[in-house]
């Protein structure tokens, strides 16, 4: 197999290709159209592109082949789609680009988009969002459904896309770049509570997979593995990937939120001081 075969999709999905091309084009176009002072800096652009590239790679290259025929690589794929990729995309703060495109929406589209907005509001209720985030991991790892998802092409794509979209929703809620002091977004304390809440159920699932005596996910036996790795080893690695990295991601996200909280406090303290100083002078 030549090197470029590794870049080609194993299972070509036109809709996936279109979705990524559209997002990339809209991002670059928005970037180009924005005035220089609103335009995200090089590091932010890089973070966005890296997140996008990671998600595309695990979904639509040879990586996907290994994800379909090796349990632990499948867990790695979902780690990128549900955690790492969306986290990077959100951290890059694409808000200026999103605002640019929001301004392009013609007025008559407003009522059409209303149900989408409402659905978004419901899904972003903190408890719903956290339940959905953990629930989707559990759902697709239900042995029966996991078996079906690995056999059925439409279900497989639904699984991967639902993980990516839910990842974006959840990490946007947690790492929304807007400050709760000035805008109606989730408070920092609540963000941290959610990040802590999602750790135990994910760890429990990972530990359950890791310490299972029998094969929980036998579809990889039925369909054959990408290379002859002992099934126990495959399951063990998969369990570790379900357990440890998501907990670490929560930890990292908590540090980021705490950092922002402190910066916000300093900023508001400064403005307060400046206000007081202003009053004295006046």
């Amino acid at each position: 197999m030549s090197w470029y075969h590794y870049l080609l999709p194993y299972d070509f999905s036109p809709l996936t290709l279109i979705a990524f091309v559209v997002v990339l084009t809209m991002y670059l176009q928005g970037l180009y159209a924005l005035p220089a002072e609103e335009r995200p800096g090089a590091l932010r652009v890089f973070t966005f592109l890296l997140g996008l590239l990671l998600c595309y790679t695990v979904m639509h290259t040879r990586f996907d082949y290994y994800s379909q025929y090796m349990f632990f690589i499948h867990r790695g794929q979902h780690l990128v789609l549900h955690h790492l990729g969306p986290l990077l995309l959100v951290l890059s703060n694409p808000l200026p680009i999103m605002r640019f495109w929001a301004r392009q929406i013609p007025g008559w589209l407003g009522p059409v988009l209303w149900p989408v907005k409402m659905a978004y509001r419901v899904l972003q209720q903190p408890l719903i969002a956290a339940t959905l985030f953990v629930g989707l991991i559990y759902l697709w790892l239900t042995p029966e459904l996991h078996f079906d998802a690995m056999l059925s092409r439409p279900l497989y794509w639904l699984m991967n896309w639902s993980m990516l979209l839910d990842g974006l929703l959840f990490w946007w809620l947690i790492l929304d770049p807007r400050s709760p002091h000035t805008e109606r977004v989730l408070g920092y304390g609540k963000r941290i509570i959610l990040l802590v809440l999602i750790i135990p159920p994910q760890s429990a699932l990972g530990a359950w997979i890791l310490f299972s005596d029998s094969m929980v996910y036998d579809v990889y036996e039925v369909c054959g593995r990408a290379w002859p790795l002992a099934p126990e080893t495959d399951q063990m690695l998969g369990g570790i990937l379900t357990w440890i990295p998501p907990a670490m991601m929560s930890g990292i996200a908590i540090l980021i939120v705490v950092g922002r909280m402190m910066r916000d406090d300093r900023n508001s303290a400064k403005t307060q001081q400046a206000d007081e100083a202003g009053e004295v002078h006046a």
């Binding site: 379909q68 059925s152 092409r153 039925v222 369909c223 054959g224 002859p228």
Partner: peptide, 23 residues
Amino acid sequence: YRTTFGYGKPDENGDYDVSHSNA
């Protein structure tokens, strides 16, 4: 049918194993 197969390394006689679905 969402399955795969692969070939193992040939031994000195040129014999090799083939991994395939058991379903």
